[in-house]
Amino acid sequence: MQLTLSVSLTHYLVLSAILFGIGLFGVLVKKNAISVLICIELMLNAVNINFIAISKYVTPGDFIGQIFAIFVITVAAAEVGIGLAIIIAIYRNRLSVNLDEFDWLKW
């Protein structure tokens, strides 16, 4: 009996879910704004994996998933650029990147 190890869709989905969970956890609990940004990148990449895996396994002929993944990477790059700029602006004002101190959205 030969143990065949093949990578199926489920593996990809589990990997993606784990990545997404780690990212989400970081977004929710990290105090440092830059860490939060990095965690968001994790979540986005989890989504990218989903896109590509499903595209490959469910609709192998066309490349909609792949195109979407590239699209997401582009947008993520822009988002990180703006995010970092905002964090720098806040840091100049507050001399801090601790999210706990950023509660001015309150009433």
């Binding site: 929710l28 999210l99 706990d100 950023f102 001015w104 309150k106 009433w107």
Partner: peptide, 13 residues
């Protein structure tokens, strides 16, 4: 309304 983004994100999730 705490004003903390992470709380909002948690509720959202």
């Amino acid at each position: 309304q705490t004003g903390r983004l992470q709380n909002y994100a948690l509720v959202f999730f």
